[in-house]
């Protein structure tokens, strides 16, 4: 319900909802928790919290590096769930979505993971390596447990495949605006507009754009056409740039990362 409410509120204010991605535990648990807790105060409407994985095969260099930093700092899946619970206690209404790869969840145990995610107040999941063909693994159990399962639509998803991808998806539809990995290139406003129209012809769910959106201006352009916009790699890059030589948090890590989130949140308003 929190996800639907956030999009309704954005719509009522004639703007897009802004989602920010950060990797849990990057560069360490305490710092990433502080950033996570601060995001809603910058105008961020929903949060995608990355669960670090050793082999993030759909991610570009920025988020790969973030994953490795988080793992090096000792981040475990249970820490991510603990962070989620703390976030929920502080921000009862802000949607929180966990994003990552299936193997850590599979090893943790799907039932145990879903129980704990629901208890922690997680709203939805985005699993990069679970296409509809593997819905029985996690998608259907997650839906049963009351979590949204948010699916990625890509430029390679044609009209024949669209209904397959959307069949068991919920929450919102996440349009990957480039054929590529996170944080590399950017899509044109025209192609985003076309894709949004195409998705809306198949689904009543909010349509969100992500991958390759880096600046407040790009957020604004995407916000003209989309119900929501997600920025990930640019935020992770900002965080990385603030680290000291050994890759540890500096005095400016939290403030610099949150400052970018605030600037990006300005872009969700459709007028400058």
């Amino acid at each position: 319900m929190r996800i639907a409410a956030a999009f309704e509120q954005a719509k009522a204010e004639d703007r897009a909802a802004l989602g920010i991605f950060i990797t849990a535990g990057d560069p360490d648990l305490e710092t990433s928790k502080e950033i996570l807790m601060g995001l809603p105060h910058q105008g961020v409407d929903f949060v995608e919290l990355g669960m670090p994985f050793s082999d993030p095969m759909a991610d570009g260099p920025s988020i790969q590096a973030a994953s490795l930093r988080a793992l090096k700092a000792g981040t475990k899946l249970r820490h991510v769930l603990e962070m989620a619970a703390e976030f929920r206690a502080a921000h009862p209404n802000v949607p929180l979505i966990l994003m990552g790869y299936y193997n850590p969840i599979y090893i943790y145990g799907v039932d145990r993971f879903l129980d704990e995610a629901v208890s922690a107040g997680v709203d939805g999941l985005i699993m990069v390596d679970l296409p509809p063909e593997e819905d029985e693994e996690l998608c259907l159990p997650a839906r049963q447990a009351g979590l949204d399962f948010i699916r990625l639509i890509t430029p390679t998803t044609d009209d024949a495949r669209m209904p397959v991808v959307l069949a068991n998806s919920s929450g919102f539809v996440y349009y990957v605006s480039i054929t590529g990995i996170t944080g590399t290139r950017s899509a044109s406003a025209d192609s985003i507009a076309d894709a949004m129209a195409r998705i809306r012809s198949f689904s009543a769910l909010p349509a969100v754009v992500g991958f390759g959106i880096k600046t407040p201006e790009q957020v604004r352009e995407a916000a003209m056409h989309a119900d929501g916009v997600v920025v990930g790699s640019a935020v992770v890059d900002q965080l990385a740039a603030s680290l000291d030589q050994d890759g540890r948090a500096s005095a400016s890590t939290v403030s610099a990362t949150l400052a970018l989130a605030k600037a990006l949140a300005e872009g969700r308003h459709r007028q400058a």
Binding site: V128, P131, E134, R151, L152, T156, T157, V176
Partner: peptide, 11 residues
């Protein structure tokens, strides 16, 4: 199985 990103599924 087929545990890949959606971009690759059509391929």
């Amino acid at each position: 199985g087929r545990f890949v990103a959606e971009t690759l599924m059509p391929l």
